[in-house]
Simulated assay, not measured.
Amino acid sequence: MTLTLEQVKEKSAPMLDGLHEVVRLAAEQLVERCYKRGVCIRITQGLRTIAEQDALYAQGRTKPGNIVTNSKGGYSFHNFGVAIDFVLIDSGYDMKADKDSDDMADWYEVVAEAEALGFEWGGHWASFKDFPHFQITFGLTTAQYRAGKKPTAAKIKAARAKIASGIKNEEDEPMTAAEKKAFDALQDTVAQLATSRDALKDRVSELEDKDSMTCPSWAREAVAAAVAHKLMDTPDGASYDVYRLLTIIHRAGFIKN
């Protein structure tokens, strides 16, 4: 069964309660952005109480099970609502799975999106690598959090700016493997559409009916050209697919400024 974005978001919603507002925003963006890449994830851990952390620390030590953390209660960023863990909905913890067949492991697609949003990935740690773990600490240590220190307004503002910049400007970044594959597949279609303005306008109208959103910054140049050529009436109110298609067509040179 193919899950909708709302269904995927609902699976993570319970674990977002109690997170720092900025970390929650980043987590929500992560779920959405991974979904758009064809990778469905679920947030499995968010805020963890001191007691829960101590119980987890005991696992593999004084309680049955494997060791899953080196942090006692109060020594994990989860205890302060600034860390999350995730799992792939389709592939669990298989870090080599490529369910969306874009020649990039789904796990590392998630990591790329998380880091673009400002998350630190536990997979980069020198010791006790924590591959499902992401955190935004605002430059504070767990000792500082234990002492009651809070992120400054400047740090919070910077983190918000990073999340905003993480919504990629596709004009500035190289195509991913998935985008390159989609671009190659669309080239033939674009060539055919370019021979008939009416056909292109009909296709845009068809896609516009599917959804409605404000024109994203990365599509503005392409949309301006489309409006100038009367392929659409207004820059806002189209779907993500419309903006993406117009951007690809514009980059290919079929719509001139």
Score class of each variant (00 low, 15 high):
178 A>H: 13
178 A>K: 15
178 A>I: 15
178 A>P: 10
178 A>Q: 12
179 E>C: 00
179 E>T: 00
179 E>P: 00
179 E>G: 02
180 K>C: 12
180 K>Y: 13
180 K>G: 09
180 K>F: 14
181 K>F: 03
181 K>Q: 05
181 K>H: 04
182 A>E: 05
182 A>K: 01
183 F>Q: 00
183 F>Y: 01
184 D>I: 10
184 D>N: 09
184 D>V: 11
184 D>H: 07
185 A>E: 04
185 A>I: 02
186 L>M: 10
186 L>P: 05
187 Q>V: 15
187 Q>S: 12
187 Q>T: 13
188 D>W: 04
189 T>A: 09
189 T>G: 12
190 V>R: 02
190 V>L: 12
190 V>K: 06
190 V>P: 07
190 V>Q: 03
190 V>H: 07
191 A>T: 07
191 A>E: 10
191 A>Q: 11
192 Q>P: 09
192 Q>V: 13
192 Q>F: 07
193 L>F: 08
194 A>E: 11
194 A>L: 12
195 T>K: 14
195 T>Y: 09
195 T>M: 14
196 S>I: 07
196 S>C: 07
196 S>R: 08
197 R>C: 04
197 R>S: 04
198 D>H: 12
198 D>N: 14
198 D>V: 12
199 A>M: 09
199 A>T: 10
199 A>S: 00
200 L>R: 07
200 L>K: 06
200 L>P: 09
200 L>Y: 08
202 D>P: 12
202 D>V: 14
202 D>T: 15
202 D>R: 15
202 D>W: 10
203 R>M: 11
205 S>T: 11
205 S>L: 14
205 S>P: 13
206 E>F: 13
207 L>K: 01
208 E>S: 15
209 D>F: 14
210 K>C: 13
210 K>N: 12
210 K>P: 11
210 K>F: 13
211 D>V: 00
211 D>A: 00
212 S>F: 06
212 S>L: 00
212 S>V: 06
212 S>Q: 07
212 S>T: 09
212 S>A: 08
212 S>M: 03
213 M>R: 10
213 M>Q: 10
213 M>K: 13
213 M>L: 08
213 M>G: 08
213 M>F: 11
214 T>G: 07
214 T>F: 06
215 C>L: 02
215 C>R: 04
215 C>T: 06
216 P>T: 06
216 P>H: 04
216 P>S: 00
217 S>Q: 04
217 S>I: 06
217 S>Y: 02
218 W>N: 00
218 W>P: 01
218 W>S: 01
219 A>H: 07
219 A>Q: 09
219 A>Y: 04
219 A>C: 05
220 R>G: 09
220 R>D: 11
221 E>P: 11
221 E>K: 13
221 E>Y: 13
222 A>F: 05
222 A>Y: 03
222 A>T: 01
222 A>C: 01
222 A>V: 02
222 A>Q: 00
223 V>E: 11
223 V>A: 08
224 A>I: 12
226 A>F: 02
226 A>T: 04
227 V>N: 08
227 V>A: 00
227 V>D: 03
227 V>R: 01
227 V>Y: 02
228 A>Y: 03
228 A>E: 11
228 A>M: 08
229 H>P: 01
